[in-house]
Computed example of a mutant assay.
Amino acid sequence: MRVLIVEDELYLAEAIRDGLRLEAISADIVGDGDSALERLAVNEYDAVVLDRDIPGTHGDDVARRIVADGLPTRILMLTAAALLDDKVRGFEIGADDYLTKPFELRELVMRLRALGRRPAESAPPVREFAGLRLDAFRREVYRDGRYVAVTRKQFSVLEVLMTARGGVVSAETLLEKAWDENADPFTNAVRITISSLRKRLGDPWLIHTVAGVGYRLGGSAEAGGSAEGGDP
């Protein structure tokens, strides 16, 4: 997942970001509503953790814009307002979930994971494809019943590939989904991570390079790519 954190208390925003990264969730931070709208216009986020009381454009209006623009981004409102009427109003303007301060980071992660299972095409909590089983909640990967130890970044990349279910995913998309906005677009991090992930998953390799296009999961190398190959 890739998440936008909209929170004007920087220490809290950074704590959330660091906690999400430990769960293989990439996160960017902004401190006001205007900046949030700018980021949402140029980046594709799976979810936004949105504080309602923020400088600039109010959090409620940010939520309304997300809904009005038809963005697929899920909205998790984060606020100190715990009254039922406040929650009802939040849902009425487009929130998908609501969490009041103070909160436990673990609960925030679980709620974000739940929202991640509810895109336009709903994804199951445990994904299975090409002999792989990926459990996003436990952050576990199995190949043909064998547990595979992966790093957080490898898990993020594999999650994106499994979501595509054999479709080709470009290096740019992987960089956007599995890294944050500070990632260098000219980095070879994607190629390195793919290479190490192939080795972790073992033979025969499941991730194939489609020259000039991207990477795909499952099937044979002859069915549209090579197991090794260069970075697209």
Rank of each mutant, 00 (worst) to 15 (best):
M110E: 15
I192F: 01
I75R: 05
E176Q: 05
D203M: 05
D97H: 12
L201I: 03
D144C: 03
R152H: 07
D53I: 09
A36W: 09
D61C: 03
P72R: 00
L115V: 14
A164K: 06
I5C: 08
D18K: 12
R138C: 04
G202D: 11
L76A: 09
L84P: 01
R113L: 15
G219P: 05
T193I: 03
V62N: 07
L50M: 09
E128W: 06
Y98T: 14
R146I: 06
L108D: 08
T79E: 08
T79R: 11
V3H: 06
A130Y: 08
R2S: 13
K87S: 12
M1E: 11
P102S: 14
R127G: 07
G70L: 10
A81W: 14
R165W: 00
R65S: 13
R52S: 02
A227R: 04
Y11N: 12
A178T: 14
T100E: 08
A171C: 05
V6K: 06
V157I: 14
R191S: 12
D60Y: 12
Y98S: 15
A63W: 05
D53Y: 06
V210G: 02
S226A: 09
P102L: 14
E23Y: 10
L12G: 03
A63R: 09
R133L: 09
P232I: 00
L40W: 02
Y98V: 15
L50T: 07
T209V: 11
M77V: 14
T173G: 00
A211D: 02
G145F: 05
H208Y: 04
D180H: 02
R216N: 02
E140P: 00
T73M: 07
A27P: 06
L217P: 00
K153S: 11
L175K: 09
N43F: 11
V6I: 14
R216M: 03
E228D: 03
E176W: 00
N43L: 07
V141P: 11
R146V: 12
E14H: 09
A63L: 07
E92Y: 09
D180C: 01
L22I: 00
H208C: 04
P55Y: 05
V88L: 15
E23V: 08
T100K: 08
S195Y: 06
L132N: 06
P232Y: 01
L217D: 02
L174Q: 02
T100Y: 06
S122C: 11
A221I: 01
S226W: 01
R198H: 06
S122P: 06
G131L: 09
L206A: 08
V30N: 03
M1R: 14
V148G: 03
A211C: 01
I25Y: 06
G166W: 04
R127Q: 15
R143F: 09
R165I: 00
L201E: 02
L99F: 10
S156H: 02
T209K: 08
K87I: 13
A114V: 15
Y98G: 15
R138T: 11
A114C: 13
L4W: 09
I194W: 07
T187Y: 00
G214A: 01
G219R: 08
M110A: 15
K87P: 01
D34F: 02
E104M: 15
K153D: 12
K199S: 13
L22S: 01
R17K: 13
E14V: 14
H58D: 12
G56P: 00
R152V: 01
A189W: 01
V30E: 03
D8R: 13
D135Y: 03
V141C: 10
L201Q: 02
A114S: 15
V169W: 03
